[in-house]
């Protein structure tokens, strides 16, 4: 049923947005730690960078690129829902821009792939 379908993807966007946000919150302290080590001197930073060269950490970074892109794109969608004019259709459903949720997921995965491509190749 169409309504159920819409409800499900909208809910998916809601959940993805929250989860990607939580993921980012967990990651950011480490990110700042690494940046901070750069200030402390080359050796500390090099140690950390060598550590982050491990495949598992690379995988983590790949996931984080996706989380970040997803969080950004879903956030933009909410801003557009709330700030842009809604299409003047009688049922008013178009303004939800439900299709954009899939677009956001697609773009985030592509960005993740570009990251992997750039880092590994």
């Amino acid at each position: 049923m169409m309504t159920r379908h819409r409800l499900t993807i909208s809910y998916m966007a809601f959940v993805l947005h929250r989860l990607s946000g939580i993921g980012l919150i967990c990651f950011l302290p480490f990110h700042f730690l690494v940046l901070g080590l750069g200030l402390e001197g080359e050796a500390a930073l090099d140690n950390m960078l060598a550590y982050t060269d491990q495949p598992l950490i690379k995988l983590g970074e790949y996931i984080l690129v996706i989380l970040f892109s997803l969080h950004l794109l879903l956030g933009i969608r909410v801003l557009i829902i709330e700030w842009m004019p809604w299409p003047d259709r009688a049922d008013g459903q178009g303004g939800l821009r439900a299709g954009w949720i899939f677009a956001a997921l697609g773009i985030a995965l592509i960005l993740g792939w570009i990251f992997i491509d750039g880092v590994i190749a």
């Binding site: 309504t3 819409r6 709330e82």
Partner: peptide
């Protein structure tokens, strides 16, 4: 949260 459960229902 602007996800529109209300409007779809």
């Amino acid at each position: 949260h602007s996800q529109g459960n209300c409007m779809t229902a």
